[in-house]
Simulated assay, not measured.
Amino acid sequence: MSKLHVFDMDGTILSGSACMELCRQLGRLDEVIEVEEAWGRGEVDHVGFYELLIEMWEPLTDLDVESAFEASQWLDGLPEVLADIRERGEYSALVTMSPQFFADLVVARWGVTTAHGATVRAREPVVAEAVLFPEDKPRIVDELLTRYGLSIEDCVGYGDSSSDVPLFQRLRHSVAVNANEKLRALAAAEYDGSDLREVYAIGRSLLDGSG
């Protein structure tokens, strides 16, 4: 029987956030930090968050996106983990509230099976239906499990923050990675550190029933 490994991106396999790295590339890091803090306080909703970012991203080019991706700090061992999943005939999914165009680079570079993010673009209006919400994560995972003919017992999720709460409430197997206290309380296991291979070993032990 195959398995499905579901990864959040920001704060889980990526230190920081994709939006922060994109704005850093444009020299607008301080501004995006203010926006993210306002979002964290509930002063800006998910759609409003992207509407503010789109204004900052007006000069963003494909080269800027690639440069931001290259400069990002990914957890150690990410390529090896995704390669091992493929070699076992299993599936990986990146489910993130960050932009789809950034998540797609993880597919292209390291071969995650599928990526799901917000379909927003620079210089284009933000469509509310294109923005992902935390509640979308378990829906997406259920759709993937149906597609692959798997059950919830065949799935493990890896996340770090409040956006992963609905998914962790749905999953039996979950690993909180450098996570906040709320997510740790929901997780089957937790990890603090910078090596995704160690995180993945915990996830495998949960799937194997030895964790």
Rank of each mutant, 00 (worst) to 15 (best):
S92F: 01
E153C: 11
M97P: 12
L145I: 07
R88N: 12
P125G: 09
R121E: 13
D142R: 07
I54W: 15
G159K: 06
F102P: 07
K137S: 11
G159S: 03
A103N: 04
P125F: 09
L105Q: 02
W57Q: 09
V131K: 04
L94Y: 05
F133V: 07
V107N: 11
L78W: 03
A128L: 08
D136Q: 02
L150S: 02
E143L: 06
A71R: 10
F133M: 06
Y158I: 00
T114P: 03
V65N: 08
T113P: 01
I54Q: 14
E80P: 13
V107Y: 13
D76L: 15
V65C: 06
I140K: 02
L132D: 01
E90W: 14
L53S: 03
P99G: 09
F102M: 03
L63M: 11
L150N: 06
Y148Q: 04
D104V: 05
Y91W: 06
T114L: 10
F101M: 06
E70F: 14
G159E: 07
Y91Q: 12
R121W: 13
E124H: 15
S92R: 02
L145D: 10
F101R: 10
R139L: 04
A108N: 13
R123S: 13
I152C: 15
T114R: 10
S162I: 12
E143A: 11
R86I: 14
L150I: 08
V131E: 09
H46F: 12
F69E: 07
P138V: 09
E55Q: 14
P134T: 04
E66T: 01
S161D: 11
A83N: 12
R86S: 14
D104R: 13
T61G: 07
S162Y: 12
G48M: 04
S151A: 15
P99Y: 02
V81I: 08
E90M: 09
W74V: 08
C155N: 07
V141R: 02
P79I: 02
Y148N: 00
P59V: 15
E129N: 05
F49W: 04
Q73A: 07
Y158H: 02
G111C: 01
S162H: 11
G149I: 06
V81D: 03
A122P: 12
V95Y: 01
H116M: 05
L145G: 07
Q100H: 10
W57K: 09
D136S: 00
A108H: 11
S92L: 03
E135T: 11
W110T: 09
W57P: 04
